[in-house]
């Protein structure tokens, strides 16, 4: 009877915690799983890669894996440098522009995808508030934008992918054409589904994203690169989001809508980069 009473109190306390401290439960749960998920990442990177090298009788497998990571980091640095060069040229023309806010790219391995429910398009990364990550920080790979951080714990963070139906990204078309000006729109996440063609059921084909509220009078050509416009509070300007497939007028006829294929293969994410800012908004 006494033990049953203890369990009753434990049940009541658990319900109370869930109701009044749900955010804390999330942080606690992610931190509790973090050591095991991080160990899995470590095993994959060290033991599995080396085992593959032994089995394939080539040391180049492990070396190639390390080189690929180095190349990815260098490509990120190069992309940042190119963007900085363009900005310097622009600033020289404008003169009295304020200097950019310092920020840095942090590499973060992917711990898990979709959480325990697979309702949202999200991934969990092995970097958290202790590494300077904050809510709203953009997450990218060399190929393009992945998403943004929506929740942070000391060692992990949850990232909502741009393919999530709740995702919104302020975008513009790159070099749409002479005399057109800047064409901007809002990118809506479309979720992900298997391909309709049964031959491709094993491939992770993402439903195209929708770029809405484009100028109705300009029909962008296919394969136009879609980049972030920098107008929102999250993504700096110039990051690749995807490539335009086709466009059509929206049902009300007031604007144009386009289908965009994301530049990043979300199913193949292994390591990503988080832009952590040091005070205020992002630099660009």
């Amino acid at each position: 009877m006494k033990q049953a009473k203890r369990w009753v109190w434990l049940l009541a306390a658990s319900l109370g915690v869930l109701v009044f401290w749900h955010a804390g439960v999330g942080v606690f749960s992610r931190e509790a799983l973090y050591p095991y998920e991080n160990a899995k990442v470590w095993l994959e990177r060290t033991v599995w890669v080396r085992l593959q090298a032994v089995l394939s009788r080539a040391r180049s497998a492990a070396r190639a894996s390390m080189l690929e990571r180095d190349v990815a980091r260098l490509r990120m640095a190069l992309a940042e440098t190119e963007a900085l060069e363009a900005e310097v040229a622009r600033l020289r023309a404008l003169l009295d522009f304020s200097p950019p806010i310092p920020c840095r790219w942090q590499a973060a391995p992917v711990l898990s995808r979709g959480g325990t429910a697979a309702v949202w398009q999200s991934v969990r990364l092995a970097k958290g508030s202790l590494h300077g990550v904050r809510k709203g920080d953009p997450v990218v790979v060399p190929d393009g934008v992945v998403g943004r951080v929506v929740d942070v714990s000391p060692h992990t963070c949850e990232t909502m992918l741009i393919t999530d139906p709740n995702s919104r990204v302020a975008c513009e078309l790159e070099t749409p054409g002479e005399g057109v000006g800047v064409v901007r729109g809002i990118l809506y996440g479309g979720g992900a589904r298997p391909a309709a063609d049964p031959v491709l059921t094993l491939l992770y084909v993402v439903e195209p994203l929708r770029l809405r509220y484009l100028a109705r009078d300009f029909e962008p050509p296919p394969r136009t690169r879609v980049v972030t416009s920098g107008l929102g509070p999250t993504y700096p300007k110039g990051l690749t989001v995807g490539y335009l497939l086709e466009s059509s007028l929206e049902s009300d006829g007031l604007s144009r809508e386009a289908a965009v294929l994301p530049a990043v293969d979300m199913a193949a994410l292994d390591e990503v980069f988080i832009l952590t800012r040091q005070g205020g908004r992002h630099a660009r």
């Binding site: 049953a4 369990w7 009753v8 434990l10 049940l11 658990s14 319900l15 915690v17 869930l18 749900h22 439960v25 999330g26 606690f28 749960s29 992610r30 799983l33 979709g114 959480g115 325990t116 429910a117 697979a118 309702v119 949202w120 999200s122 929740d151 949850e158």
Partner: peptide, 20 residues
């Protein structure tokens, strides 16, 4: 009471880790 506590904990973990 043990079974109900297990249900609450299992459900809480599912929601917390799944963003529900």
């Amino acid at each position: 009471w043990v079974a109900l506590t297990a249900a609450v904990w299992a459900g809480g973990l599912t929601d917390a880790l799944g963003g529900l």
